[in-house]
Design a protein around this nucleic acid. Structure first.
Lengths: 217, 217, 217, 217
DNA sequence: TATGAATGAGTCTTCATTCAT
DNA sequence: GATGAATGAAGACTCATTCAT
């Protein structure tokens, strides 16, 4: 007779029973991360929300932190995937519109990610383990660098953009997005409000600030 | 006649005895903010670090939060002052060097300010009171906008920079600084490492990404 | 499968394990109420006396107040039940003896109830919740009114007592009992001492103070 | 040069400076006793209300308790004095009206005294010292016995009341008053409401409950 | 393995009392 | 004597973790 499975996952069939509950706990914790700050989530909250008992957690994770880190990674991965979807390819539409689209996606990613990331910073040990967990892949806001870099390089290859170093340029797109995302959280500004600022930024970036001394000359 | 002074501040001379300990407590809390996150600071920590007993705090502040807000404001004010000092004036040196200086100062301010700001986000009530406390002045990263905007406008007036909208341009300077500051904290990158990226970003910003379609034409 | 039970109640058999400790805590608190005033009972006192750890309380009650109210209600209910037991019925024995028995029971109830009730008055919020808890039934000393009123009415119906209004008469029995109960607590007089005063009071009440002006005539 | 007198009493002239402040503190504490429960009064409250510094108290009293006991005694003495004033003398008016007046005065005394007395019971050590302080004189509700006993004996001597033992009769007047006073506090009943019950009680007491068996015969 | 009650260290806060000035 | 700031013990409550069943 195989041991009893937790009530909450008994309906799931076909999964490996040993990992089904583990996954369920991570999913539950991830959902909770959407509602409140990391620091405000107790093990009991997770257990209750998952419909399991307080102790199970310790059968699958070394402790609260390990579970939380797993949930954070999953949440972060989801946000990045949403970011990467529907980005325009080089050569399509106009460069300017495309850059606006990239910037907008970046703002959204930041707005989605930042509150959690911020909460994470108040728990240094948790932050450390989170950073370790997403170690090899580019972390933090930089995870969005690659698609943007690819796009810019693509347009350069197609001749729709001048020659310039890719890395600084990516910073010039991601940076303002981060600022706007920050404003959303701290200043309480609405998404529409922020979105309105993007075209001006993109246009200024495309033009450059220039100099009378003939920088480009 | 006068009541006795706390051991911890008995050596301070010339201060108003009535406020010496209050200041000492704020200073102590401010120092603690440099070491760890707001959430991780207990009243006992502050008392111990200040060399006073557990209860003093409540002789000068309504509670832990009030003391912490005072310390946060002081800390923030200090950072902003350091940022505003030694910024080049329009018309001096070269525009490019100056923008690098501004960007560098911004990165430093971010690196200094961000960890605390982030920690603050996990304590909504504290954040609220902090934001209220620095109410009239622009808060958060925006505090660095004004000097940069002034500088850019100044150079435009002097004819050393093209015509462009100021606000987007400021975002294009502050944004990358914010990203680099973030990297310092999350990625653990050194100041030198980050500093090395700034000139490339400034140059790219001055030049612009351009378009073959002749954006400027 | 079932979680472990607290050491303190592990010996209790046959109880519902889920409520055994809850009951144990209420019992413990009730006992403590016999020893000292409500205000002087700390959560730690209760935990220590119950032989459990400081935190258990919060697994069964919303807080100290809720536990205390439960204990107060139980204590009060017990006193009232003891009061109501063994009271003589109308028509049995002599009226005078019966009234002495009622008065004696009332004195006992007061002596038992008053110290706690008094202590309760210094904790308005607790008093409020206690009064709410025993909401429907008449509270305080009035709980003893009903049986006495019934008895007097019964004897009147049987013709063993004159016609008079019931309510004032009840006051005239409960009142002296309250005074004697008070004396027990404040004056530290013994039960025997107080008991000796009851027959005289009853006899005087039966006779009335009269007036030469011929009140009854 | 005589030492400085506390600000708060510097205006009082002619008093012994050493006792003026002591009196002022007792007066202040007494006033505070009218506003809230004993347990809710802090030394700081008293000092602030008295307009003196926190520490003076300890120059005149062994501690908070001693001051509080002094204030309690003074307060109690005042209530008793008010009770004793304006009581009708034997032979004046009608006996019934006079007994109503005595009962009413007793209810008022109880209503005035009881809240404080009740609060006192939650502080056993304080209660003990208070009882000791008013040791020789009859304490608690019994302080009102003497005038009532005198009155009853007077009327008996004048032939306006039958022969009966004084002590039980006093209990039969004070007792209901205590009950009504209690109702005022616990049940929140108004003075008017309670006053309305007094005449019925007095009349029933004068008449007596009687018995068909011919108690008086 | 799942359960969920028990554990107890740790948090903020209050306040009677002391004592240097 | 007066001042009033400093002291520090105590109190109610939280919550990650353990472990008997």
């Amino acid at each position: 007779m195989s041991p009893r499975r937790a009530r909450a996952v008994r309906s799931r069939v076909g999964d490996d029973p040993a990992t089904a509950l583990r996954e369920h706990l991570i999913d539950t914790a991830e959902k909770l991360l959407g509602d409140r700050q990391v620091a405000g989530i107790t093990t009991r909250d997770i257990a209750r929300a998952a419909g399991v008992s307080d102790g199970v957690l310790y059968n699958y994770f070394a402790g609260k932190h390990e579970l939380l880190v797993a949930a954070l990674v999953r949440r972060y991965a989801g946000s990045v995937e949403r970011f990467e979807a529907d980005l325009p390819a080089p050569g399509t539409g106009t460069v300017e519109d495309n850059l606006v689209a990239y910037a907008q996606a970046a703002v959204d990613l930041v707005a989605e990610t930042l509150p959690t990331a911020a909460g994470l910073m108040s728990e240094p040990s948790l932050l450390h383990r989170f950073v370790e967990a997403i170690h090899q892949q580019p972390y933090g806001p930089q995870r969005m660098y690659h698609p943007i870099a690819e796009y810019l390089a693509g347009e350069q290859r197609l001749g729709r953009l001048e020659e310039f170093d890719i890395d600084p340029a990516v910073h010039l797109i991601v940076g303002p997005a981060l600022v706007l995302g920050f404003s959303a959280i701290i200043g309480g500004r609405s998404r529409e409000d922020l979105t309105a600022e993007i075209p001006g930024i993109v246009r200024t970036l495309l033009t450059g600030l220039g100099t009378r001394q003939g920088l480009r000359a």
